[in-house]
Amino acid sequence: MSASTFSRTVSVSGMLAWRALILVRRMPAVFIPSLVMPLFILVATSGAFHGISAVPIGTSSYLAFTLPFATIMGAGFAGINAGMTLARDIEGGFVDRLISSPAPRMSLVAGPFTAAAMRSLFTTTVVMLAAWIGQLPPPGLLGTIGIYVMAASFAMATACWSMGVALRARTVQAAPMMQLVVFILVFTSVAYAPRDLQTGWLRTVSDWNPVTRILEFSRTAEFQTMTWAGLWAAIASIAVLMAVFGSFALYGLSRLGND
């Protein structure tokens, strides 16, 4: 990619990210559920599973244990929304306007990708504020950065997945497919319980699930027990997700107009 193409990609992606963020404000019906769900997870699971904090989960507060789950789930919703917005744009013909212009095609996914990361920062902030109101002390600067970075990374990875689905299915009716994979990834990880407490197939799946390392690192960030090994494992997991889902999205992008 030449310097001028890169500069154009950044410029157009920024504009499309800005548009995606404005649409969040103008379509609250789409945004509110993706904000409420992580809060619901935070409140409901920390209430329902409060007693589990008696078992070794690394903390005495299930609220602290479940906070990263809520932030990652919120990030997942932000990513799913990127795909839903793209599908809506494809169905409505707005994507045709973008791809019949000389704007770099990469910006078609780079814009929503950036917007998903930014949205996840907002959702994470709301979830952390809710946890703070729930008497959970903030995890310190490094821990906070860790939680934000993991959430934003997961939002970008799931944005790639959902945009890949949108680019293949080209209809917003594919939204359940976007959600399905994200939910499976999150719910078969260490969302509800650490790996030590998992048994059978769930433990096996959890061991191989990239989201496990992301959630585990987020938890160490929350507990302020981060390690380099945990960070590298999380980075590797994000890289795997990005490579797989990013390739899927780029393949879909390359097929636009060829089918």
Binding site: D96, R97, S100
Partner: peptide, 14 residues
């Protein structure tokens, strides 16, 4: 080129 496609494909929220 300039293109105005069928059904005026413009974002109703902008």
């Amino acid at each position: 080129i300039g293109v105005a496609l069928q059904d005026a494909a413009i974002d109703p929220f902008m």
